[in-house]
Design a protein around this nucleic acid. Structure first.
Lengths: 342, 342
DNA sequence: CTGAAAGCGCTTACAG
DNA sequence: CTGAAAGCGCTTACAG
């Protein structure tokens, strides 16, 4: 009794159980329009054949016929963060309840935007949540939404056009952080940014341009040698801040595009005898929980709640609605959270 | 001229361009067996129709027909880490070159193992890399591999059965770390572990059981109040170590299941006036780059190279091979990396 | 209550 | 060089 060399299909099951493929499908899916389900005896025969042959439904066949993949995606710029992990987890839970699956699309490198769009355009998934800074063309999103794709997009500028938009007001919050530093008397303020942040599609990013704007508004020249693309790597951030502090004219404050890098900025300063915030004030962006627990607690900018249930619920509302819904604007506002590091 | 209300199909394109669907398919895929491709004039007509109607190929239709999804998956236990991020990136790059897509499956919660298996069983992907501690039944993997799924599995015990296995020898390395602490005279050694680590399918995990074994071999009673499930959260790890140090009989050393938590253990100790390693020796597991840069540099256990190209290449070899390949054993050995924190 | 049949969108040997 | 046709695996109105 050798293992089946091929994957069995419903036809194989039907033959073995002595029923039609329709009956097999009804038994397996539990669906049956309004009508009664097959009687227990038939059901058992089918299930036995399924078990004996190791039958598994085929995703391609099912989703072609159903016109639905039963899958949703979470798309976010790499590297992942506690926030993207958390959202993935919440989507996972909500999806499992409905028998749906979740895939994550961490976008790294140049090809990432294209890969993301393919997943949406070719209908690998029925819906998706896009976290901020996903490199996609708003036009495209509107077209996809019109074709029935369920989309919840974190973006501060995009108008909702058949998809929902989550506003965070990141620019405002980032500006608040820089202004906070300036109000405390800082003039030499370094910025730890994402690599390539300067040349994004909607270049430069909200974070970097907020930094530049506020400096300019306050008559401070934004020295280019104070802008460092190290915020995605903790070790790079640590090393960069260490080097910064060794310069003849070190900055007195740092804003970091990520809390991770900000925290390493704090350690770098402390390790080199520079007190925080006395010698170097540090503000992060993102509000991860680690910032609360370090000494000094990290001043940062971000959402207060570690909770995306409203956004996830909205995605599933869209999925459940037969017809396309109008776009809605939701809020998950970022705020300046002043703690001890700045 | 309003937007098409539905997604156009190749039939629509064919009609518009005045050709057959076969020609449309040939033009779009660039495939043509051995034969010559359609002439330029026809090609242009088709491409124009595609552009005008906004045609996008349908993934379900294509993969049903091709018997391939053109997708590979990376599966790993949540939360993500620099290693999983890095592997995702490398898979992304290699896949983009071949016109394939990559999805990540971070597994969190109880339903995760089931969700993972569904993705593999229902053939949502053509292949996958499974990082250590994915909660799957080896039997299942063998069956899936036999049915032609390409699988590269990080596991120290599993025999390769139609899939490849990457050996890391994690138990050995973890034991080395604990022995290193004991050799330095430590007797009260705390362990920061993953939540639920004690009751895994193959319970308990390699890391925890290595810790317990070495203590036992050295006649040290493993106090249960020194085992804390905080290694997945930096803030929890920080708080836990802080509390540990306030006890009347604090531990003199800590082993952590993650470098992240180990690093926060270092900070917690330093913040509370306990020198590292003098007052508290700390060893991590994982070897993330951040550990190199902190002060004191983190002693840890892990792979030396931040590079998965051999494993990724092997996955694609499998994918490219028409027939199923035998299972191969690869090595990405973990080592004890002694630096300054222990 | 069950089965025969159509058809989801695509690809590909094959006939012309 | 191009098109008609079969068929991938599944689901579902529909006829019996």
């Amino acid at each position: 009794m050798t293992e089946p060399p091929e994957r069995p299909t419903q036809r194989d099951i039907a033959r073995r159980a002595g029923v039609s493929t329709a009956t097999v499908s009804y038994v397996l899916s539990g669906r049956r329009g309004g009508a009664k389900p097959p009687p227990e005896e038939t059901r058992q025969r089918v299930l036995r054949a399924v078990a004996e042959m190791g039958y598994q439904v085929d995703h391609a066949g099912r989703s072609l016929r159903r016109r639905r993949s039963g899958l949703v995606a979470l798309m976010y710029p790499a590297p992942s963060s506690p926030w993207s992990d958390r959202l993935a987890e919440q989507m996972q839970e909500a999806s499992a309840e409905r028998g749906l699956g979740v895939v994550a699309l961490p976008m790294s490198g140049a090809a990432a935007g294209e890969a993301l769009l393919r997943v949406l355009r070719e209908r690998y998934v029925d819906g998706a949540v896009l976290l901020p800074d996903c490199p996609v063309d708003p036009e495209e999103l509107a077209v996809l939404a019109r074709q029935g794709l369920s989309l919840v997009v974190f973006d501060d500028d995009l108008a909702p056009e058949g998809f929902d938009v989550v506003r965070q007001d990141r620019a405002r919050a980032c500006r608040d952080a820089v202004e906070h530093l300036i109000a405390a008397g800082h003039r030499r303020i370094a910025y730890l940014g994402h690599p390539g942040e300067d040349s994004r599609r909607t270049a430069p990013s909200v974070k970097l341009s907020s930094y530049r704007q506020v400096l300019q508004e306050n008559g401070i020249c934004a020295a280019t040698d104070l802008v460092l693309p190290v915020a995605d790597s903790r070790s790079q951030a640590y090393a960069a801040v260490r080097d910064l502090l060794r310069r003849p004219d070190p900055p007195t404050a740092v804003v970091s595009a990520t809390d991770r890098a900000a925290i390493d900025a704090v350690w770098a300063a402390r390790d080199h005898g520079v007190p925080v915030p006395g010698g170097l004030a540090v503000s992060g962006i993102g509000n991860i929980s680690e910032g609360l627990v370090i000494t000094p607690a990290l001043t940062t900018v971000g959402a207060r709640e570690f909770d995306f249930s409203a956004q996830v619920a909205r995605l599933f509302e869209r999925l459940d609605a037969g017809a396309p819904l109008d776009g809605e604007v939701m809020s998950a506002r970022w705020e300046l959270i002043v703690r001890d590091s700045a």
